[in-house]
Computed example of a mutant assay.
Amino acid sequence: MTEQVAALKNDSRECFNEVYESHHTKLYQYIYSRTQSSYLAQEVVQLTYIKLWETRSRLADDLPIDIQLFRIAKTTLIDELRKESVKLKYNNLVSNSAELLYEDNQLTDKDTLTHVYAAMENLPAMRKKVFKLSRVHGFTYKQIAGILSISPKTVEHHISKAIKQLRNSIKMFFFLW
């Protein structure tokens, strides 16, 4: 058993610090040469030392610490690259799904709007006039009553009936769609 492995197995923080100081730069350069990413190299080196400390009791007695340290780093790098790959696939999937949903919603909105306009055209003549003056042109009930020479209560009645009729038409549209 090497002295460093034995010391680490005996929970020696001094030995851990010594291993860290003597191998940190080499380990960082090794990972950086494989990834060309300083962020990923820093992450993998940090995770490597965490794993070294957490698994110190299971270190091989017959292998030098540097070989074991680099093995831990290599498997940690592979794990991190797999995680990144999964994230990229997931992000692409989410992005593509969002685009498809947006396009579907655009079509749905367009179809719904087309259906609402068609349903408005199917309203009885006076109800259609009152509804368009109110909802399309923005006139108040009192103004519509003055334009069409009817009472504001009649305008309110026509609007109420038009909304109910359009609501039923839209419900049927979504039920069939």
Rank of each mutant, 00 (worst) to 15 (best):
S12P: 11
C15H: 02
C15G: 07
V19W: 08
Y20F: 11
T25N: 06
K26Q: 08
K26M: 02
Y28Q: 02
T35Q: 00
T35W: 00
S37Y: 01
S38V: 06
Y39W: 14
Q42D: 14
V44K: 01
Q46H: 12
Q46C: 04
T48W: 04
L52Q: 09
E54L: 11
R58I: 15
D62S: 03
I65N: 04
I67Y: 12
Q68L: 02
R71F: 09
I72W: 10
K74W: 02
I78M: 08
I78E: 10
I78R: 05
I78C: 04
L81A: 05
S85L: 01
V86N: 06
V86Y: 11
L88V: 03
L88I: 08
L93Y: 08
Y102H: 12
Y102V: 07
Y102S: 11
D104P: 10
L107H: 14
D109S: 13
T114D: 13
A125D: 15
M126R: 10
K129T: 15
S134R: 01
V136Y: 10
F139C: 07
F139I: 01
Q143H: 09
I144H: 04
K153Q: 14
V155I: 13
H158E: 02
K161T: 06
Q165S: 09
R167N: 09
N168F: 01
N168A: 05
I170L: 05
F173N: 03
L176A: 11
W177S: 14
